[in-house]
């Protein structure tokens, strides 16, 4: 298990470059072109990130998060979800930049290797911004009746959220 995770990243990088060279791709030019799009997408999230980090910091410092977390902790502890990841689990399907900001905040406050940091990581990696995806895709072709899309997609999210906590306590203790 440990080896998979240690080698995954270098193997991934090397195999892409080797495969690219075999196929006679201009790997460097390609890389730069792709990296440029990374800059663009990062710049795209700066403004929403500022907005959300302001709201989240205020929410935490005012004591509001603590009050809500305390009120909900009996229900959450029932499924093994710490109260600190509650805002993330609620915002995850709604806003990608908001959940990115929340994960950043969790990493800053508790550290990426804390139990909370690990649960937040798995939750972030295994779920998607459901409402955004639905809006973009169905919006693009003008679908009026989404039928069973929202309940099905939300079932996937809810399952992902519950299992994040479960898997972390089973595998990464």
């Amino acid at each position: 298990m440990k080896y998979i995770s240690v080698y995954a990243i270098p193997v991934f990088i090397v195999s892409f470059i080797v495969f690219g060279l075999i196929r006679k791709v201009n790997v460097y030019e390609c890389f730069v072109e792709g990296a440029k799009s990374g800059v663009e997408s990062m710049f795209g999230i700066i403004a929403p990130l500022v907005g959300l980090m302001v709201a989240i910091s205020m929410f935490r410092e005012s004591g509001a998060l603590e009050i809500i977390a305390k009120a909900l902790s009996p229900i959450l502890s029932y499924v093994g979800l710490p109260a600190e990841v509650l805002p993330l689990s609620i915002l995850r399907p709604i806003s990608g930049s908001a959940s990115l900001a929340l994960v950043t905040d969790i990493f800053k406050t508790y550290g990426p290797d804390s139990q909370i940091g690990k649960i937040a990581s798995v939750m972030m990696g295994s779920t998607e911004t459901t409402f955004y995806t639905i809006a973009v895709y169905f919006g693009a072709v003008g679908i009026k009746n989404t039928r069973h899309t929202i309940p099905s997609a939300l079932s996937a999210d809810l399952t992902g959220i519950i299992f994040s906590a479960l898997i972390v306590s089973l595998m990464l203790k």
Binding site: I9, S121, V122, G125, F163, L172
Partner: peptide
């Protein structure tokens, strides 16, 4: 993080279950 890639396998498992 001491081991950033540690969460990869759990992420795969949870994604598939979801």
């Amino acid at each position: 993080s001491a081991n950033p890639g540690e969460v990869i396998v759990p992420v795969w498992i949870v994604s598939i279950i979801a």
